[in-house]
Design a protein around this nucleic acid. Structure first.
Lengths: 231, 231
DNA sequence: CGTAGCCTTGAAGGTGATCAATGTTTGTGG
DNA sequence: CCACAAACATTGATCACCTTCAAGGCTACG
């Protein structure tokens, strides 16, 4: 359980637990385990019974759902501090509505759902923080929906900016997670080829720069400009 | 406050309050008011300070958000029993992220946000029910996102079926809210003309029938069939 | 060293947007 | 009660954006 102790120190820095004593956090995370994932490991699958929720410790996970035509659609990118599976608690026999897959080496704290029922929900402040995270996610979804009629370049621009906002790493202008063109396409509901056409144009113009699936934004203003009214 | 008493009887039938005593519900709704709206009345506007949340009593409201090009995008249709504005509670100085507009004559119970902080959050069961409603809404958004690459006819089909599911009225096969083609288009991120082309084809084939913005599904199987894999 | 996953580019084709014109219904004020 | 405006519904023609298909190159990894 030493690793668990370390994890608890780790998560005490996350916004959800801000201001809570370590002992309290430890109690909230009783019986939790740490899942260590490699690239493309599946944390949980859509349709499976959900016995735990949890928090992303490091790395990133993509949350996806199969579509009618068989392809997967990425619904959300989860980065450290994100609570995943918070909605399962409200149901009697909870089922994961989506699948979670690691993007690069990642770690996840698996918390039994009983903990939520027994201790988390008793702390109003905690309920608010969770709702805050969910609210953020709902807003991202809504904002993307609002852009459904916009040209692809604007969608890509909005996605990059939205991911940059979460950035807490050392380099302000590098996206906080490794992202392939395919994943961008799967998230925006576009084809890989179209995404590539948009982004290689930006690369040529020196607006962005990518190596090894890490995307660096060189000229953020140009990306923001992309979102301006083009009519 | 007689009207309020009546409203409380009304909402005691909604899923959120199932099993709660009338007195308790009355306490939860202390200082609430009833907003009576006509068609197209605006209940609240995106960007405005949010001092209350609430529950749809009757009629329906569309929740929308302006897009970059100025047009409004409908993010969600709220029907009786829906909790609207539940996410504002988690913030210090809450702002409505979306606008709510009445679709036909509708009524809404406005509950001060303080109530949530003081009494609602103290009842775990209530927290779960709220999260359940939010979860449903999140799932609808996610499901629509998953369909982003599907042809328009499938999106319309999915929308009709999803609205039929909420149906509690006398006629199983009539959508529970008045819906214009324009609103469908604004919700799906399509143009009115395209929606019309899809739906008039269905009308011709006797699959659906519309009078006065009430849509009746005559042959649900044909709509479901529309969602089958077309590859 | 071969496979798997990702990136890239070009050409062809389609779905749906846009534009324009007209009909219909609803609501409003003189 | 009529006239006029506003919102909604409809249909056709044109065009753009993006998808699909095809083919090839690159890198990582067993």
């Amino acid at each position: 359980m030493n690793a668990l102790q370390a994890a608890i120190s780790e998560i005490s820095g996350f916004a959800v637990f801000d201001g809570l004593a370590k002992e309290k956090i430890a109690a909230l995370c009783a019986n939790s385990t740490i899942a260590t994932c490699d690239h493309r490991d599946i944390l949980f699958s859509a349709g499976r019974p959900a016995l735990h929720f949890g928090i992303v410790l490091s790395g990133a996970f993509k949350l996806s759902k199969p579509s009618l035509n068989g392809e997967d659609v990425i619904v959300h990118f989860s980065t450290p501090g994100d609570v995943v599976g918070a909605f399962i608690m409200a149901q009697k026999a909870p089922i994961f509505p989506i699948s979670a897959t690691a993007m690069g080496p990642s770690r996840f704290l698996k918390i039994p759902k009983e903990n939520y029922l027994e201790s988390w929900v008793k702390i109003p402040e905690l309920v608010f923080r969770i709702q805050n995270l969910l609210s953020t996610r709902m807003n991202i979804l809504q904002d993307q929906k609002v852009m459904s009629k916009a040209p692809l370049s604007q969608k890509v621009a909005a996605l990059l900016l939205s991911l940059l906002e979460r950035n807490q790493g050392p380099d302000e202008m590098v996206l906080p997670l490794p992202l392939t063109r395919k994943e961008i396409a799967e998230n925006l509901g576009a084809s890989v080829e179209s995404v590539i056409r948009v982004m290689s144009e930006w690369s040529k113009q020196g607006i962005i720069e990518t190596n090894d699936q890490l995307i660096r934004v060189i000229k953020p203003d140009r990306i923001i400009e992309e979102l301006r009214d083009k009519s």
